[in-house]
Amino acid sequence: TTYKLILNGKTLKGETTTEAVDAETAERVFKEYAKKNGVDGEWTYDDATKTFTVTE
């Protein structure tokens, strides 16, 4: 399944996708990605669109 991440950081904005077996796995991948890019904020997930959003 393809999951999407929307980054709404103070200095970094953008989108990325990952293939994962479930939302929990995708969330771990995306949180590591955000951490590596210095983005830390509020996380939300929309199951209907398989989209995570992190907003600083």
Rank of each mutant, 00 (worst) to 15 (best):
T49Q: 07
T25S: 11
D46T: 13
A26T: 01
T17E: 10
N8W: 08
G9C: 04
Y33A: 03
E32G: 05
T18W: 06
T18Y: 11
D46R: 04
K36Q: 15
T49N: 10
G41C: 02
F52Y: 12
E24G: 09
L12S: 11
A34H: 01
G38W: 07
T55N: 04
K35H: 14
T53P: 00
D47L: 11
D40T: 10
E42Y: 14
T49C: 04
T49H: 10
D22V: 04
N8P: 02
A48N: 10
T16R: 15
K4T: 13
T49K: 11
G38F: 15
T51K: 04
K36R: 12
I6Y: 14
A34P: 00
D46F: 04
A34C: 04
N37W: 09
T51W: 02
L5F: 11
T17Q: 09
K35T: 15
L7V: 12
N37E: 14
T11G: 13
E27C: 05
F30C: 02
F30G: 00
V39N: 03
G9P: 03
V29A: 13
G14W: 09
V54T: 03
D40R: 11
K35M: 09
T2G: 06
F30T: 00
K31F: 09
T2A: 07
L12G: 08
K50E: 05
V29P: 01
T16G: 05
A48R: 10
G41F: 03
E15I: 04
K31V: 14
E19T: 06
K13Q: 10
T51R: 03
A20H: 03
T55K: 07
K35L: 15
T25V: 15
A34Y: 03
D22C: 04
E56I: 04
A26W: 01
G38N: 15
V54D: 01
G14S: 15
T53C: 05
T53S: 05
A20W: 02
Y3V: 01
G38R: 08
L7K: 01
G9F: 12
A23N: 12
F52P: 00
I6S: 07
K31G: 05
Y33F: 08
R28Q: 15
N8K: 09
T2W: 14
K31L: 14
G14L: 15
T25H: 07
K36N: 12
K50W: 07
E27R: 11
D22T: 09
Y3I: 01
T18Q: 08
F30H: 01
A26P: 01
W43H: 01
D40E: 07
I6T: 05
N8D: 10
L12P: 03
E24W: 07
T55C: 04
V29S: 07
T11F: 14
Y3Q: 00
A26H: 00
V39T: 04
Y45A: 01
E56Q: 09
Y45L: 02
T16Y: 13
E19D: 11
D46E: 14
A23F: 12
E15H: 09
T2L: 15
T11S: 14
R28Y: 11
N37T: 14
T18V: 11
E42D: 08
Y33E: 03
K13E: 10
L12K: 07
D47E: 08
T16P: 03
E32F: 07
G38I: 06
A26F: 01
K36F: 12
T11P: 06
V39C: 04
K10H: 09
E19C: 05
F30W: 02
T55S: 11
I6K: 09
E42R: 06
Y33Q: 03
L5Y: 02
A48V: 11
A23Y: 08
F52T: 01
Y45F: 10
A34N: 03
L5V: 05
G38E: 13
K13D: 15
K36M: 12
T17G: 06
T1L: 11
L12F: 13
A20S: 08
G9T: 15
L7G: 02
T1I: 14
T18P: 01
V54P: 01
T55F: 11
G38A: 08
E15P: 03
D22R: 05
V39M: 06
L7T: 06
K10M: 08
N8Y: 09
T11H: 12
T44H: 14
F30N: 00
K4G: 04
T17D: 12
K31N: 07
D46Y: 07
E27H: 09
A26N: 00
F52Q: 00
K50Q: 15
Y45K: 01
K50P: 00
T11A: 13
E19K: 11
K36L: 12
G14V: 15
A48H: 10
K10A: 07
K10G: 04
K10N: 13
D22E: 11
K13F: 12
G9S: 14
V21R: 09
R28D: 10
N8G: 04
E27V: 07
T18L: 12
T16Q: 14
D40F: 07
Y3C: 01
A34I: 08
A48P: 15
E24Y: 11
G9W: 15
E15F: 05
A23D: 04
E15R: 04
T18N: 04
K50D: 04
Y45S: 01
T2R: 08
Y33D: 02
A48D: 10
E42V: 09
V29H: 14
E19H: 12
K50S: 12
T1D: 08
A26E: 00
D22A: 07
L5M: 11
T16L: 14
D46P: 00
T1F: 06
E19N: 13
F30V: 02
F30P: 00
D47M: 14
E32D: 06
T44L: 14
K4A: 05
T16I: 11
T55P: 01
Y45H: 02
A20Y: 03
G14M: 14
L7S: 03
T11R: 04
D47F: 15
K4P: 00
G41S: 02
G38S: 10
T1P: 06
V21P: 15
E19A: 10
A48I: 13
V39G: 03
T18G: 03
D47I: 13
G38P: 01
T44S: 14
T11M: 13
Y45W: 05
W43S: 01
L5S: 00
T18H: 12
T51A: 13
T53V: 12
T1Y: 10
K31Q: 14
T44P: 00
T44M: 14
Y33H: 13
T17P: 02
E56F: 06
T1C: 04
K36G: 13
L12H: 09
E42N: 08
D47P: 14
E56V: 05
V21D: 12
L7H: 06
G9H: 10
V29W: 12
D40Y: 06
L7E: 02
V29K: 08
K35A: 10
E19V: 08
N37Y: 14
K31T: 07
T44E: 14
N37Q: 14
F52E: 00
Y3N: 00
V39Y: 05
G41T: 02
K13I: 12
E42G: 06
E42A: 10
W43F: 07
A48L: 09
V54A: 05
R28W: 13
G41R: 01
T2H: 12
T17I: 09
A26R: 00
A20F: 06
E19F: 15
L5A: 02
E24N: 09
V39A: 03
E56N: 03
G38K: 14
L5N: 01
T11I: 06
K50M: 06
T16D: 04
E24I: 10
F52R: 00
F30L: 06
G14R: 05
D46G: 02
G9M: 10
E27S: 09
V39I: 14
F52C: 01
Y33C: 03
A20M: 03
A20V: 07
D22P: 01
E19I: 12
A20N: 03
G14N: 13
K13S: 10
V39L: 11
L7D: 01
T2V: 08
T49Y: 10
K10F: 14
E56A: 05
V54H: 01
G41L: 02
D47S: 08
R28E: 13
T18R: 05
T55R: 07
I6A: 03
